[in-house]
Nucleic acid binder design. Structure first.
Lengths: 328, 328
DNA sequence: CAACTGAATGTAACCGTTTACATCCAAAGG
DNA sequence: CCTTTGGATGTAAACGGTTACATTCAGTTG
């Protein structure tokens, strides 16, 4: 390329990068030759030389549905205007896999967003150079050494259950999220706290298993059937399960909200379109992604700031028909 | 690093890469020093030298919801076991942006999966070296020069509408997808063909606008209200709109399927949990991603194969209650 | 015991850029 | 007419690895 244009590689580089050190004439000349030869600069080589990849790594667990896409969209949306790309890895990560994934990103990314139920600071410390930019997204027991953003799972669940209790319910069941999942345990914690604060006797018989799928919600409802005194309200740890529960309740001829109050979590778009419309806890996932990305960008662009932030995006109750608080 | 271990860089490289050319003793020695120094190989430098990035680029339009995540999941799932990463770019792409995104991936990826309603072979030819591995995913008017995978949108829509016609319906409405969207136009085409083949008079009054959101589905139903002779069946170009329509119909006191048959498209997980369960067209999005990725991998690993493939993943009718074909 | 062999290691070129520094050259100043 | 100056370009050293080829050095082999 440089030879073809009769100039040095340095000049080509400068021409391509619009440096002020080249004449307009040569710049255009180089551009013309480049077009003719189909020359395109090699991103990898460039980032090797500049030590900036303009890429951020995004490590996600194998999550599904809206959450995944929303969070990535939020990240990509804030990161792209700044000229960054996303290198994503969405495998199911146990500790070793996480470490491997992290390793293979080294030298390809300027920083990473890490979302992993399995995260431990230890892994990261072993894998990354100290000072490598990392932001934790919805990770359990966040290491104080890292920036971290989470969803107000506990508070949201607490609010929902308190709402149900205030409606007069005493036997409030929960359909739990996937075992071991961070969101799931936090929501359970919120449920329990609200039950305790409402002075309702703790009863593990009211805590049903689930895994965030519609089917598991339906399953849980079927299990309730055989109880001597059925719950009068159900808090499903996400909307998918709530909708599964709704279907099972209808099948069983139990009217919502007349005979059973129902609340979900996440406030997916569909929540307002089921019948009755689903009371839920709204979380702005996209904003979660955006803020996380913004924080990482700040670390990449700005001067190293030793302060660690820990941020929680709010989860707010949105009351619709399924809980029975609204008039018909 | 090499100095610290008292060996040459070549030996370090060989040790790190488990080459058979180093003694176990030195391999372990190098590993020990590496651990002590926190040395991690630099992926970018490595791929500059080997001319393999083990990364594939994924260019997606700004799509939302399940589709996005499913397709990426499918891609990531098949690509990871082969040791590849995904560099994704999910902006809204007009021609120029697409070209820019493509350019910035050059030298960072070994090949790309391209999913863009705006795609033209021209762009790619201008941006990429001839022979650069590309697979088109659900792109309109695929250029014969590229491999391409698509959804059987036309066939799926055709099957749904024929099904409705066979149930005796004569006034079958369609709620269309987003204007200009490739899937949307293909589904419309399938609708029209099925109408024609059922010898039902074409009537643009039966073709309602929509944009794939729940709200637009509800909107369309409200518009039908004012018609002199209302349709007796609705084909919504995706499930979200169908569910929006369902809510609006219920609100209007129109019973589904007794007074109105309803069919959707995509068969999202929720389809079976709404009431009545939604008749839809099932598309295995994850498989779409998997096959596309598999095809790209074949091009990357295998010898250059001049043959271009064009593959369509099936879209199959799944009959549930909302169309009225099933007994109560 | 010298020559040969082959496995382990070292040397240095290369991948395709950027960039500090050196060089060149025309215009301006003395 | 000989400096000086400064803008445009060239040179070469990074960046951090891989790898063809050269080298070393043990253990055969004749």
């Amino acid at each position: 390329m440089a030879r073809a244009a009769g100039v040095s590689v340095a000049t080509v580089s400068r021409a391509v990068n619009d440096s002020s050190l080249v004449t307009d004439a040569t710049r255009q000349h180089v551009a013309a030759i480049a077009r003719r030869l189909g020359y395109m600069p090699h991103g990898g080589a460039r980032s090797l030389a500049t030590r900036r990849t303009h890429t951020i790594g995004v490590l996600l667990p194998d999550l599904y549905g809206e959450f995944f896409s929303e969070v990535i969209r939020g990240i990509d949306l804030t990161v792209r205007p700044a000229g960054y790309h996303c290198l994503v890895s969405s495998a199911r990560h146990n500790g070793a896999q996480l470490e491997a994934a992290l390793r293979s990103m080294l030298g390809r990314v300027d920083g990473v967003i890490l979302m992993s139920p399995e995260f431990s600071g230890e892994i990261s410390r072993r894998t990354l150079h100290a000072g490598f930019p990392v932001v934790l997204l919805n990770c359990p027991s966040p290491d104080p050494a890292f920036d971290s953003l989470t969803i107000a799972n506990y508070e949201g669940a607490y609010g929902m259950v308190r709402h149900l209790a205030e409606l007069g319910h005493r036997r409030i069941a929960i359909i739990q999220g996937a075992a071991g999942n961070f969101d799931a345990t936090e929501r359970l914690r919120g449920y329990r706290a609200a039950m305790r604060d409402a002075e309702l006797a703790p009863d593990v018989g009211l805590e049903f298993a689930g895994d965030f799928t519609e089917e598991s919600g339906a399953e849980a409802v079927r299990a309730m059937h055989e109880m001597p005194d059925r719950p009068t309200a159900i808090f499903a740890a996400n909307d998918s399960m709530a909708i599964g529960a709704l279907a099972a309740l209808r099948e069983a001829g139990i009217s919502v909200p007349d005979q059973m109050s129902l609340g979900g979590f996440d406030d997916i778009p569909m929540a307002r379109y089921v019948t009755p419309a689903l009371t839920s806890v709204h979380v702005d996932i996209s904003a979660l992604g955006e803020r996380t990305a913004a924080r990482l960008l700040a670390k990449l662009e700005g001067p190293a700031d030793a302060r660690r932030i820990r941020h929680t995006v709010p989860a707010t109750l949105v009351v619709r028909r399924s809980c029975g608080a609204l008039p018909n």
